[in-house]
Design a protein around this nucleic acid. Sequence first.
DNA 1: CCTGTTTGCGCAAACGTTTGCTCTTACAAA
DNA 2: TTTGTAAGAGCAAACGTTTGCGCAAACAGG
Lengths: 342, 342
Amino acid sequence: MSQVSIVDIARLAQVSPSTVSRALQGHPRISAERRAAILALAEELGYRPSQVARSLVTGRSHTLGVVVSDVTDPFVAEVLKGAEMAARDAGYRLLFAMSNRNPAQEIEAAEALLDYEVDGLIVISSRAPDRYARLPRLRDVGNDHRIPVVLLNHAQVSEFIYSVKMDSESGARMAVSYLSQLGHRRIAFISGPSGGRSSSERLAGYRRAVLEHGLDASPELVIGGAGLLEDGWETLAVLLALKPPPTAVLCYNDLSAIGLLAAAAQMGVPVPDALSVVGYDNIPLSAYTTPPLTTVEQPKEAMGRTAVKVCLRALAGEPATTTVLSGQLVVRSSAAAPPRAQ
Amino acid sequence: MSQVSIVDIARLAQVSPSTVSRALQGHPRISAERRAAILALAEELGYRPSQVARSLVTGRSHTLGVVVSDVTDPFVAEVLKGAEMAARDAGYRLLFAMSNRNPAQEIEAAEALLDYEVDGLIVISSRAPDRYARLPRLRDVGNDHRIPVVLLNHAQVSEFIYSVKMDSESGARMAVSYLSQLGHRRIAFISGPSGGRSSSERLAGYRRAVLEHGLDASPELVIGGAGLLEDGWETLAVLLALKPPPTAVLCYNDLSAIGLLAAAAQMGVPVPDALSVVGYDNIPLSAYTTPPLTTVEQPKEAMGRTAVKVCLRALAGEPATTTVLSGQLVVRSSAAAPPRAQ
DNA sequence: CCTGTTTGCGCAAACGTTTGCTCTTACAAA
DNA sequence: TTTGTAAGAGCAAACGTTTGCGCAAACAGG
């Protein structure tokens, strides 16, 4: 640490360290000349305050912890991007950890981040949302210094856990309604990671739309998945094995939809002529598939930004909220009227 | 901070804080019973050491800064994933920042991370590699406490800047050789972000292979790009405008290749029948395009892991190295023999 | 029994800030 | 002149650790 510190400046400026500190933060009771002199000196020496020393005394690290399931998932990456930008804009930094979609690892990571005294915690695709309310350090602390946790795409699970989410149910509902309007009666759903809130909400939206439009509600039409490329790929076979096969399918996310598209192309199943497929998320790549994917947009970057904003507001003492953003269907060409209706 | 500290434990155990500290870190000169008692107490109280206090005194934060161009790029995300895993395995955390492919923002981010006393810096797709050697805090510090910087896919730019990279030149060369063996004589190259080291190396590899195989070396065959989906999309038109159009194209990365594929599908240009395309990176999605993309594999996760390993070794005092990993061609079906050779 | 070494532990300084309190000086009001 | 107040700056404690040094007791060798 041959780094220049506040006392180096103090020595050179012939003042006390406290004066330097106050001058730097614009404390009113420092004369203008001193202030200027100190600022100039600091600039000249290339002084940069030690964030860790600052943290130690103030109890604020200007750091937010973010734990994600897997950065490699385009949806997650996009949200993370939004969060990073908002954090930077607010003078905050992000301590990053991955859970590999593993609940135990997720909690472990969260705890580790707390060791670094992050001011808040953002969890992007939680697999263990209800455990946060029970983390000792999140529970015990007096209300004056509670560490806000904001969960993405999860309902608020406790009084002090915040939530920003998209209305997944209506998103899925919109997609199914659209397919229904195109003439489809037998629509399959590939679900996401079990236990995931967004997965169950999308399923609920699917079921609701199926009911509302009086579509085929056979349970065999909902097929398990985990939101991975492979899921979509493997699912095509089970779709085709159904009797009769569905004419359309709503996928948990774009990734599984893309897997499905690939399988269809490989097996010579024309999309959308023989099978309509719609995804969810509207990741950038979804515009570049063949055919381009009809999908429901999730405001990913905005969700990330909002998450840190909510977190920061919580730090400022605002009560917990769950803010819900809305998406919309983006129509491209992977869904069309069913064969028999043509 | 109503957090339990080392002095709380000390009070309860009727010993001094130093003893607690030493007991916790397994110092030999603490009796076994005391040690056990203290450990038990710590466990019971749910004690977790304050990393920031620790950092302040030891000068080590057990934190690595990582600045990336854009997490949203699948290549970057994959490398980041590898880095995160290796860091976690070593008991390190990652402070994350994004540069948005902007040199000024990149340096600013790096400086900000240094304020948090990161032990090392990893830069994933640098746009300003040569500026690190000049950062005051990286230059001035005595050799005992120099902060290692490892650049990904950049050559070593100074004695104290480390580098882990793939041999991009030979990767590109392999790809072009392969196309040449298939019978292509006129092969285009879509370049990556100008100024990027990997872009120029891949271009060099392309040129070398073109020369070696006596292929058409017209300068019009190398086309500018930035490694984005849009680049590939827009490039198809300029490819087709060439007279005669090339029969194959090597793209800077899979992203641009996928853009190109999409454009081709949309404009009815059959791939690989009318145009062979090969990508670079082998991102997971490249196996799910139509047709599946022939590409050159980059060991992305391994690169991330290696980056943190190199960084940690540097901290342990090993001299700077540049380690180069090797890739290989993964043949799928987006490249085949040219039309006239069939 | 004396000296020398080992074992076990505490004291206190240090890391680089921030901040409540105190102190001095100047200046205005009475 | 006295008193009161405001401005400007310093003292020292505090944040939670780590660690060099010192000290006492125990123990070994002679």
